[in-house]
Design a protein around this nucleic acid. Structure first.
Lengths: 340, 340
DNA sequence: ACTTGCAATGAGATCGATCTCATGATTGTT
DNA sequence: AACAATCATGAGATCGATCTCATTGCAAGT
C-alpha cells in the first residue's frame, strides 16, 4: 500500500507537509497543497487510520452495546445512534450482549484496549470494567447509558420518565372504568421495569386499588408476553386490562387473547410500550406509549461527544418526552352493567 | 495509561518478553510468565490494540453494512454475523446505509483506511471502492455479500435460492386453486427481487397463467405493503392471493385487507417472505418462506474468515436452504362454486 | 538597511506493541 | 569432554502518521 511517505516523495515535500495537507490544509501554501493532492490522487492514497490513531490517541469509534439487537425498539435506538455518530465523524462498533454479563464485560473491555473513544450501553448493568474507569475519571469517563436510568451510577444517560409513563397509562385505564388491571413487566432487575412498575403502583394506590393490581413477569419478548397473558386469562378473576411493558409483549398478549377466544378491546384492553412501527398495523391497532427511539439514540451520542470534547465533566441526565398513543386495543371496561 | 514497557520494568524483563507472554505465552518460561502476569495484574495493564494493529496489520474488526437495521430480517442476520464474529475474536463495525449509495461508499472506504480487516455487505450494490479492490485482488479481496447474490460480481456470498422460493410459493398457491395472483415485489434493482420474481413468473408460465400475474411495487416496508395492497384491492379483478416479498409488506397487506373489509384467508390469501418472529403472531398467522437468517449471517462470516486466513482465494457461493411455512393466511381459493 | 514577525516547511522524535535476529543458557549426543 | 541443538531472552528496528521544534524566506515596520 501507499503511505504518506510515497505521497511526500511524489510531491517533492516532506512527510510532515504531506500529512498537513490532509489534516490541517490551511497551514500549507496553495501551490504545495495542490501538488500534494495531485500525488494523493495519482497514487490512490488513503490514510492509514491505525497509524493515525496511535499517534493521536483518537480512534473515531464508539462502542454501542445492546441487550438484543433483533428487538425492534433497540434497533431504532441504534439507528439514531448510528446517524448521529456518523454525522460527527464517528463509526459505531456494535455489541449484541444478549443480556449476558460476560459479553457486556467483553465489549466494555474494548474501551480499555483503546479500540474506541467511548461507549454507550443500552442495558442497565454497568460492567465492572466501566465501573473502574468511572471511579478513576468520574464524569469525564466517556461512558453513557441509554434507555435506562440509574442515578446512583453517576453516568450520563438519555431516557424517558418511565415512572411518569407508567402512572399515565394506568390513569388512562382507570378513567375508562377499569378496576382489575394486570401489568406484564420486564426483567425485574432493570430500573426501567422498576420505574414503570412504581408509577403503575402509585396510580393504583391513588385509586385505592393497589390490591387489585396483578403483576406478571416477562422479558420483553413476544413469546413471554403470550405466556404471561395466558396465565392471566386462566385466573379466576380475569383482568379487564393488561398493560405490557413492551409492544412485543402486547402483541403476544393479543395473540393469546385470540387463541383463548377473548376479544380485544371487547373483553380486555391491551396497552403496550414503545410504539414500534408494527404497533399500528396489528389487529386491533395497539395503544401504547411512544418513546422517541431515534432521539434517545441521538441524545446519547450528543452526551458522549460532550464528554469527549471536554465540554462536560459532570453526569447529565436527559429526560426525553413520551406520549400516550390511544389506539383501538384500549377501550372502556366491558360489562359496565349496574349488576356488577 | 500503563504500557508494555511498564509491565516489563515491573517484572524485570524486556518489552519483548512481556509482549510474548500476552501473544505467544508458550514461548516464555513458566516462572518468567508468572512474573509478567503478576505485573500485568498489579498494574491493570490492557494491551493497546491500536499499537498492536499497526505492527501486525490486523485490526480484528469486520465491517457489516446493512440497508436498514430496523428491518427485523436484517437485524436477525446481523445477530448471526455478530455471534460468529465474536466467536472468532472479531468485533463488528456496523454501518446502516439506508440504501444510500453515498453511505455505502463511506463505509466501504473504511476498508481502505485499514479500519477493518474485511467487509460484509448485505445490500446488492457493490460500492465502487470495493470494486477497485476486487479488481486488484480478485477472490482474495476480503469482501463478502450476504442475502443478495449477483454472480457477475465475483464476490463470495451466502443466500438462499430466491428463484426457487418464488417458484415454490406460486406452486403452493396454484395448488390451492388460485388463478389470479399478485406479487408485491421489493426494489426492482435488487437481484433478490428479480430472482424471486423470475421464479414466480416461471411458475405462472408453467401454469399458462402468465397473463394473470399482477405485479405491484414495494420497498419491503409495512407501509409500502399496505399501499400496494390497497391498489390491488381497488382493481376490477381483485387477486385471490397476494405474495409479498417480505413479511413486513405482508403485514401491511393484512392491515389493508382489514380496513377494506376483505377477509384473510376467506377472500384473499397472503404469503410473506422471511419468517420474521412476528409472522406467527399476527392475525391470521402468516404463511411465509423461512430464511435461515442467523445462518446466513454466520455463513458470511465464515466465508470472510476463509478469505482472511488465505484458505480461500476464489469466490464461493453458498446457497442455504429455505422452507415454505404454511400458516392460516394461506387457504384455498374462495368461491370455488360451479357458477364461477 | 536592519530588525521583527509571520508563514511555510522540514528533521526527527514519538505513539506502543511486535518482529527479527543475535546471544547466552541449557540440555542432549557421541 | 566437546560439540550441536534447543530454548529463553533481549536489543533494536519497525509499522505509518503526526507532533514539536527549528529553520528558512519574505514582507512589513522603523
Amino acid at each position: 500500500m501507499t503511505t504518506i511517505r510515497d505521497v511526500a516523495q511524489a510531491a517533492g515535500v516532506s512527510r510532515a507537509t504531506a500529512a498537513r495537507v490532509l489534516s490541517a490544509p490551511e497551514m500549507v501554501a496553495e501551490v504545495t497543497r495542490q501538488r500534494v493532492l495531485k500525488a494523493v490522487q495519482e497514487l490512490g492514497y488513503s490514510r492509514n487510520s491505525v497509524a493515525a490513531s496511535l499517534r493521536t490517541t483518537r480512534t473515531g469509534r464508539i462502542i454501542v452495546t445492546v441487550p438484543d439487537i433483533s428487538n425492534p425498539f433497540f434497533s431504532r435506538v441504534i439507528r439514531g445512534v448510528e446517524e448521529a455518530a456518523q454525522k460527527a465523524g464517528y463509526a459505531v462498533l456494535l455489541g449484541d450482549t444478549r443480556n449476558e454479563r460476560e459479553r457486556e464485560e467483553q465489549y466494555a473491555d474494548m474501551l480499555n484496549r483503546r479500540e474506541a473513544d467511548g461507549i454507550i450501553f443500552l442495558g442497565h448493568r454497568l460492567p465492572t470494567v466501566l465501573a473502574t474507569i468511572l471511579e478513576r475519571d468520574g464524569g469525564r469517563a466517556p461512558i453513557v447509558n441509554g434507555c435506562e436510568f440509574t442515578p446512583s451510577l453517576g453516568v450520563s444517560s438519555a431516557h424517558i420518565d418511565n415512572a411518569g409513563a407508567g402512572y399515565d397509562v394506568m390513569q388512562s385505564l382507570y378513567r375508562l372504568g377499569h378496576r382489575d388491571i394486570a401489568v406484564i413487566i420486564g426483567p425485574a432487575d432493570s430500573p426501567l421495569t422498576r420505574d414503570r412498575l412504581a408509577g403503575a403502583q402509585k396510580a393504583a394506590e391513588d385509586q385505592g386499588l393497589a390490591a387489585h393490581l396483578v403483576i406478571e413477569n416477562g422479558d420483553f419478548s413476544i413469546e413471554s408476553g403470550r405466556r404471561a397473558a395466558m396465565a392471566l386469562f386462566s385466573r379466576a378473576k380475569r383482568p379487564t386490562a393488561i398493560f405490557c411493558f413492551s409492544d412485543e409483549m402486547a402483541i403476544g398478549t393479543l395473540a393469546a387473547a385470540r387463541s383463548a377466544g377473548i376479544s380485544c378491546p371487547g373483553d380486555v384492553s391491551v396497552v403496550g410500550f414503545d410504539d414500534i412501527q408494527m404497533a399500528r398495523y396489528v389487529d386491533p391497532p395497539l395503544a401504547t406509549v411512544r418513546q422517541p427511539m431515534a432521539e434517545i439514540g441521538r441524545k446519547t451520542v450528543e452526551l458522549l461527544l460532550d464528554i469527549l470534547s471536554g465540554r462536560q465533566t459532570q453526569p447529565v441526565y436527559a429526560t426525553l418526552p413520551y406520549e400516550i398513543i390511544a389506539r383501538q386495543s384500549m377501550g372502556p371496561v366491558p360489562g359496565q352493567s349496574p349488576i356488577s
